[in-house]
Simulated assay, not measured.
Amino acid sequence: MTFDILPTESADIPECFAAAQKAFAEFNRLLFKPDTISTESAELLIKSRIQGFNNKNPQSRNFKAVDCETGTIIAAARWRVYPEDELLIKSVEDIVEAKLQPRVPELRENVVRAFYTMLNQGKREVTGIEQDNDGRAVKLMRRVELESLFTHPSYQRKGAAKALLQRCIQEADTLGLVVYLEATKDGQPLYEKCGFEAIRTQTFEAERFGGEGAHQYTHVPGV
């Protein structure tokens, strides 16, 4: 199987969303109830993602892996470039509130709020390079932050995710930056094969907030 790595376009968002729903099925069960969200909610989420994509944040990079034979999007990645130390303007609470938008009926709000609070606080502790008098991070290190990487389940282990990750790493190398990411237990083997080393693993006890099970996420601050 051959594939091309190409920039993602706004028109690709619905197909990427559908592929991500399958790739992140376990994660979605953590954040949403029931397992499958309604058509109306899916349309609202897709519309929100298209609006975000069209804002053209100059720091954002979006790429897709496309099957050369069928034209199907088999994998996609998104990262953000921080060429200078990032001065924190928004609080963790503000960032988490944005993650709750749009509020679809299936959203497990308590779970989502607690999960992203844990993740963002962990990131600030790992990548923070300057703190205030209370020990809270006010500045994060220069980096390329991998925000999302997924492969449609039907095309996994074909090298698409690795190719997208390598594109991210290449940009970071060109700019003289490290790559920061947060890995799930399933995704960690790929990152380790590409030279990443975990620095901290956090366990999210979803049952405490009305969810199900325990989920591990590892902070990886560079390669």
Rank of each mutant, 00 (worst) to 15 (best):
K185P: 00
I5R: 01
E192R: 05
S148D: 06
P83F: 03
S38I: 13
Q188H: 07
F150Y: 05
I129M: 11
R113G: 01
Q21V: 07
V66N: 00
E212M: 12
Q121H: 14
C194P: 03
Q166W: 00
Q156G: 08
I169V: 15
N110T: 11
E9F: 01
R103G: 07
L149C: 10
T218G: 10
E69C: 09
A163R: 00
F209T: 07
T70D: 13
L30S: 07
R142G: 06
G222D: 07
E207I: 11
E97A: 07
V220K: 15
F63C: 01
V144P: 00
I74L: 13
F24V: 04
N120Y: 14
N54T: 09
N110A: 13
K90N: 15
P102N: 09
G222S: 13
N62L: 12
N133K: 06
Q51F: 02
G213I: 14
N133D: 07
D12T: 04
L87Q: 02
A77N: 02
Y180F: 11
A11T: 09
P14L: 13
T127E: 15
A214G: 08
E182N: 06
L6F: 02
R103L: 01
K162D: 00
K47E: 13
T39P: 10
R80V: 10
F115M: 15
Y116T: 00
Q188W: 02
N62A: 15
V144W: 14
A172N: 08
V144Y: 12
R136S: 08
T218A: 10
T201E: 05
N62D: 14
D186G: 04
P105S: 05
Q121A: 06
N120F: 09
Q121V: 02
E26Q: 04
A163Y: 01
E171A: 04
T184H: 07
G176T: 06
E43V: 02
Q188G: 04
R167Q: 09
E86F: 15
E192M: 08
L165I: 04
E84S: 10
R29K: 05
E197A: 05
T218M: 02
G128L: 08
K64F: 01
F27R: 02
Q188N: 08
Y180Q: 04
K22S: 15
K90W: 03
N110F: 02
L190Q: 00
A98T: 13
Y217F: 14
S41H: 07
I129C: 05
I13P: 11
E197S: 06
T201N: 09
G159Y: 08
P14W: 12
E212G: 07
R167V: 02
A163T: 03
K22R: 11
I73F: 00
A161V: 01
Y82C: 08
A98E: 14
S48T: 03
E207V: 11
A137C: 09
F115E: 02
A198Q: 10
E26L: 10
E145P: 10
T184W: 06
D4K: 11
E106S: 15
E106F: 05
P102W: 10
E84P: 06
G176F: 07
V179D: 00
F32V: 13
K123T: 10
E182A: 02
E69W: 09
D134G: 05
M118E: 12
A20Y: 06
Q202S: 12
A161T: 01
G71E: 00
R49Y: 11
E9N: 03
E147T: 12
K185V: 12
E93C: 13
N54F: 13
G135A: 03
E109W: 13
Q59K: 12
